[in-house]
């Protein structure tokens, strides 16, 4: 195995495109190194992208934020701008692993690891975030919901990697929230995750919403029926019950060591409801 730490994006692209064997991008490494030591993968090349300055940056762009692929969870959580605009995305990222893992793990890595239970992805999908994919050909912008195609599988072609994720600007009285269910208070993989992003008008009626669920299907789900339950309504008990029913109906989970079909289906609704309540409270707090 070779380890390379290029200092430019071009150099990284050249290295990855030139590798005939298995190549992997290393940013935080909190998934990659476990997979290597667990003999799940044996890469021939590892490209450490943390020495590429652009990828370590969070930059303002069109009223939104572009988050580089090598920005750690801890760095993201310290960025006041992103925390104010997309608190749900930040809380999703901050739920990944421990404080120690936060020191390394990245939002882009969490996205590209393509776990259906990834904590940052439901909030990203709800946020309609866009990933910038770079590779030997031209770079392309892809909705984050199209990066993962199944557990551990992505739509990235050989030699491609995600350079950054863009979180767009949003109207006033908008906010988001992410909640997950785990048996402990920390250190677990989500049994169910729910992200809600919404906008309210002056009368607290929801005018726009996106609802997503994690860990209840082979990939993170965008649940349009659940969003419909919110749009055009005040976030009251009846609306929330409709939202919960729509979320539970959309879940197609499996039984595994972390939860049962029955449990995940029910809790999908519970979490969607609670996340919507938090998102709405946050939106109202933004005058």
């Amino acid at each position: 195995m070779r380890y390379e730490a290029p200092e430019t994006i071009d150099a990284a692209v050249t290295l990855l495109a030139g590798e005939k064997g298995v190549a992997r991008v290393l940013a935080g490494g909190t998934d990659l190194i476990i997979q290597m030591s667990g003999d799940m993968i044996e890469p021939d090349l590892i490209v450490d992208i943390k020495r590429i300055p652009l990828l370590k940056q969070i930059s303002e762009e069109d009223g939104g934020f572009r988050i580089g692929a090598a920005v750690s969870g801890a760095e993201l959580g310290e960025h006041a701008g992103v925390c104010a605009l997309w608190p749900g995305v930040v809380e999703g990222v901050e739920l990944i692993g421990s404080t120690q893992v936060q020191g390394r793990a990245t939002l882009v890595g969490n996205l590209c690891n393509a776990s259906p239970a990834a904590d940052s992805v439901p909030a990203l999908v709800a946020a309609n975030a866009v990933a910038r994919v770079i590779g030997p050909k031209a770079s392309r912008d892809v909705p984050v919901s199209e990066i993962a195609t199944g557990p551990g599988k992505t739509s990235l072609a050989a030699g491609e990697f995600v350079e950054s994720v863009f979180l767009p600007a949003r109207p006033d009285r908008s906010s988001d929230a992410y909640l997950r269910f785990i048996p402990r208070t920390e250190m677990d993989i989500a049994v169910v995750g729910a992200g809600v992003s919404l906008t309210l008008d002056e009368n607290d009626v929801c005018t726009d919403a996106r609802v997503s669920l994690g860990a209840v299907a082979a990939r993170v789900l965008l649940v349009e029926e659940a969003a419909k339950a919110l749009i055009g309504n005040k976030i009251d008990d009846k609306t929330l019950d409709n939202l919960a029913a729509a979320a539970s109906a959309a879940a197609t989970p499996i039984n595994d060591k972390r939860g049962t079909v029955e449990f995940r289906t029910k809790v999908s609704g519970v979490l969607a409801k609670r996340a919507a309540t938090i998102a709405a409270d946050r939106a109202k707090g933004k005058k």
Binding site: P183, E186, M187
Partner: peptide
């Protein structure tokens, strides 16, 4: 509350690590 040995139908241990063998953490 949470600690348990989980075996599949072939008798293989499903949770041989601290991630899914859930001992209490400080915040619990």
């Amino acid at each position: 509350l949470n600690e348990e040995y989980i075996y599949d139908n072939e008798g293989r241990l499903q949770n041989p690590g601290f991630l899914d063998y859930r001992i209490p953490v400080a915040s619990d």
